[in-house]
């Protein structure tokens, strides 16, 4: 699954007429959902899901690597037609883009050194320096609930991990899976561990990660939602999920 360009699915194209190529914005610095492989290609759960959805829809997809900072503007300006980048569905984002149904859902979690002398309560983190990715639900969550904590903002999750290892940060607040697979289970994260319980506040964290599309593209949104349901129903989704996780990443079925 190291390809970025998906070869046109000839059979589907013949059946459905010429398919318009869909461009999908992905990120590439958020392991294990998307990361840049040594050969420069992008791999990960988001990428495999994107490929599976395109196969399901019989579309010829092009993946566009975009920095997180500019990913919504890139969608709005038409550089791509959909964002598959573990983007949480939130009311703030809903004001500018539309979302499909979720394609996975995980809580947030705080990670710090094994010998940390603090806990994850607001009082415990008072005066500590915590890193978050700029413009994420984790930044909002920290700002709302941890007024006495110093926040350092990073453009990508990987940069926050670097500064956690170097000791510039006391802890990092991030998605539990992203930080477990992308940091704790790597050699880098050897002396680090989860601090306290997982965090989930529906008001801030939203209902899960969805695929963002422009608000006027309701047809594409519905086709993607249908495709998510379709790969959930056949075994495609589970096969992809098993490659990355040993637990249920989808979470509860959403109320429809």
């Amino acid at each position: 699954m190291k390809r970025i360009l998906i070869p046109a699915v000839a059979a589907a194209t013949l059946a459905a007429g010429p398919a318009l190529a869909i461009s999908i914005c992905v990120e590439g610095a958020y392991p294990p959902f998307s990361e840049t492989a040594p050969d420069g290609s992008i791999v990960g759960f988001d990428i495999d899901i994107a490929n599976a959805l395109c196969d399901e829809m019989g579309e010829d997809c092009r993946l566009v690597r975009t920095d997180w900072d500019g990913i919504i503007p890139a969608l709005l300006e038409g550089h791509c037609d959909a964002i598959i980048a573990s983007m949480s569905i939130t009311p703030e984002r809903r004001q500018v883009v539309d979302f499909t149904k979720k394609y996975y859902h995980t809580p947030a979690m705080l990670v710090g050194p094994e010998d940390a002398d603090f806990d994850d309560r607001p009082e415990g983190l008072a005066g500590k320096v915590v890193g978050v990715q700029r413009g994420t639900i984790h930044q909002d969550y920290m700002e709302r609930n941890y007024p006495d904590t110093r926040l350092t903002l990073y453009a990508s999750q990987d940069e926050a991990y670097l500064d956690l290892v170097s000791g510039r940060l006391d802890a990092v607040m991030a998605d539990s899976i992203a930080i477990t697979e992308g940091f704790l289970n790597t050699p880098q994260g050897e002396n680090f561990t989860q601090i306290g319980d997982t965090h989930y506040d529906p008001e801030v964290h939203g209902e899960g990660a969805g695929i963002a599309v422009r608000q006027e593209d309701t047809e594409l949104r519905d086709r993607l939602s249908d495709a998510i349901r379709a790969i959930r129903e056949d075994s495609t989704y589970d096969e992809i999920a098993e490659r990355y996780f040993d637990f249920d990443i989808y979470g509860e079925e959403p109320a429809s």
Binding site: I72, R93, V96, R134, L153, A155, E159
Partner: peptide, 22 residues
């Protein structure tokens, strides 16, 4: 602004990241 400091560009990037106001 790329080494985690909030300078003028950092403020612009925060606005962009939070409200998607590039």
């Amino acid at each position: 602004s790329v080494i985690a400091l909030q300078d003028i560009l950092g403020a612009g990037r925060t606005l962009n990241a939070r409200y998607y106001l590039a």
